[in-house]
Amino acid sequence: MAHESLPQFETFRYNNIMIQLTDIQKNYDGPSGEIEILTGVSIPIPPKASIAITGPSGSGKSTLLRILAGLEPPTKGRVIVHNQNIYDLTDDDRATLRSQTFGFIFQSFRLFPALTVIENIQLSLDIKGTKNSDTIAHEWMENVGLAHRKDHLPETLSGGEQQRVAIARALATNPSVIVADEPTGNLDKKNSDGIQTMLQSCMEASNAALVLVTHDIELAKICDTQYELSNGQLLK
């Protein structure tokens, strides 16, 4: 089940740019014809960069993330990862790429309710095919201060604790890019500040780039580069 038999993707730098979204366009069928969600969106994501994408609800942020993750093909444009358009790869290879290159953090945490906290972290490591997933997962439970809750089910944790587990899950696989979609959107001010601090310190300790999608201007400021998505177009 692990991906050991599949090709490992080397970290590749193309003109110092690890990932490049080029001229992305996305249309959906609406009740009165096609709706253009994204128009000519291009984003370079260099290694260790931190990029914030802000924009109001319905501006196409989530669609852009799905396209970046290789889950939804764009109507037009390319997503270059490791010098290759990921939509030229098979669905299986894109899945392998996701497990080895990306780490995701969501607004609604998206932990598996049937798995314990530590199993949630181990799962992403197992999918990547990491050998000592147990040890790494324990280390990350320590890192996020939840070692004492490792055998609990997610529903018994508070929102802030669940998001800490989600951060641990995303970073445990040592990804090249962390994609965080409104990571503090479901949290109160105290927990939100805590998560922001934790995310910043984790990012500093890792070699990963950060793509942060948020409508919180203050949170966006932690990133080096800020873009605004408005009416499907990206403004810097």
Partner: peptide
């Protein structure tokens, strides 16, 4: 969620 984590659809 699993697909985000890199599980293949098959």
């Amino acid at each position: 969620n699993l697909r985000y984590l890199g599980i293949q659809i098959r």
